[in-house]
Amino acid sequence: MGLLSTKSKEILLGPLSRNNPVIVQMLGICSALAVTSKLEPSIVMGISVTVVVAFANVIISLLRNTIPNRIRIIVQLVVVAALVTIVSEVLKAFAYDVNKQLSVFVGLIITNCILMGRLEAFALGNGPWAAFLDGIGNGVGYAVILIIVGFFRELLGSGTLLGFRVVPQAFYDFGYVNNGLIILPPMALIVVAVIIWVHRSRNKTLQEN
């Protein structure tokens, strides 16, 4: 990419795998997993978080020299809460059904650790453009995990993808049954654990002792 310098590229692409917010930095697991029983809410959630992280990063990065250190958490929360309110109203207006499925988890983007983590660790010390790239990178890194989990859970649990049936009827005639267990909340954790397992066996430096 000629548009971006090497450093910007690193900021943007690092979080996709080696520095992934969910499976490496352990951020944002909170509100993520409950929405992944279907693919569609996972995608919407991923996009919402990306938008909020990117813009919160930019705003905090612009304000970083004027915020007194002691009250920065409150300032960050207010900025994030305002952005999340906007996202939540937009979703209510244009994607009401998905909004219903996401229920409280849209509001919970505020307390998503990705936001606080990135704001504290990155936006407070970098300029707006780098912060924007960092926000996009981390948001997409988060969305990727959500989409992988949502994909497998919907495929194995309901035999559909985005609501379309993908497992042919012939399979069911032979006695194939959807795995109801994988729709249940605990299985999301196990799917994520498997992703971590695969990811860490490929990236040996990340393994813990």
Partner: peptide, 21 residues
């Protein structure tokens, strides 16, 4: 090795969740 730390914690949480169900 790759499961150590975070991975195994997730699996255990999942199993505990199943038992809570």
């Amino acid at each position: 090795k790759p499961l150590k730390g975070l991975g195994i914690t997730f699996i255990i949480t999942g199993l505990m969740g199943i038992s809570f169900m």
